[in-house]
Amino acid sequence: MRLERREHRPLALVIATPVVAVLAALALSGILIALAGAPVLEAYRRILIGAFGSRLSTTETLTRAAPLMLTGLAAAVAFRARLWNIGAEGQLYLGAITVAAASSHLLGGLPSAVQIPLLLILGAMAGMVLLILPLWLRLRFQVDEVVTTLLLNFVALLFVSMLIDTVLKDPTAFGWPQSQSVADAAMLPKLLARSRLHIGILIAMALAVIIHLVQSRTVFGLQSRAAGLNPAGAVFAGVPLGATLVKVACISGGLAGLAGAVEVMGVKSYVTTDLSPGYGYSGIVVAMLAGLHPLGVVLAALFTAIMFVGADGMSRSMGIPSYIADVTVALSLLTMLVALFFTQYRIRR
């Protein structure tokens, strides 16, 4: 028996891979739930109820999916060009605080139709800026961007913490470190009355479609894929590697910054240092589960949101720590990696 590299991957296999990976991750987490002394199937049933059991929980799941789609797209776009942007968490926070600062100090008086697009652009630009620095370090000094983007997450969070402790502190928040709120005109329109669901999820899905078209139909899309598949070969074929990576970084950082902007303008209206329960890191899992495909990101983000929202409900009723959602999501990254391996190779006798 030996392994042989596949020349071609059938579509059914590509689609089945994440499904198998998620099922395997759920089975492995099931062992942990059983170890905690709870009936496994009942726990999963409660997770589904927690995510979809009522109008409230369904809208919460969809609300949670929006930032995950954006950070997932951020990772997918970057990873496709083999730009290892692990800094979505920091870029998200920088986008969020930029929006809060701009709306509360500068643009608050503008009407929604002008203010909202302006703020979204500013939030995205903040995310871009934070990714351009590590990319510059990579292109100029050959510094691995994985470590620098990871380290910048901590810097960005401390920077936000400093701002909401000082110049951007909300004086009416009873001493809590939280930023001033964005103007009412900056809040994204709701999709459904009496819920938190806002148009952020539509923005994210539209972006997924646009990115898919750009990647599959444009020269830039081809160049970014070439940069990822074989950088040396891409350069040989005339792809401007540096310029391509800068564009990819702008899109990736911009998407992560947008995730922060959308979360503030759609849900919270202000920034705290627990704005994101690790959306940036979960975005990596989302992107990998999606096989780095922009449309797959939408589905993978939904799965992740279901786990997080559902596990909260399950945790309250069954006494299983809600961290089980984080464990399952992390495990699904590992199982997806293994599953991908078996789609690249096949076993020959």
Binding site: V285, V327, A330, L337
Partner: peptide, 13 residues
């Protein structure tokens, strides 16, 4: 990164 995400969330759990 997968090992880090898994090991840390497993620790908290």
């Amino acid at each position: 990164l997968g090992v880090t995400l898994f090991a840390s969330s497993f620790s908290y759990y």
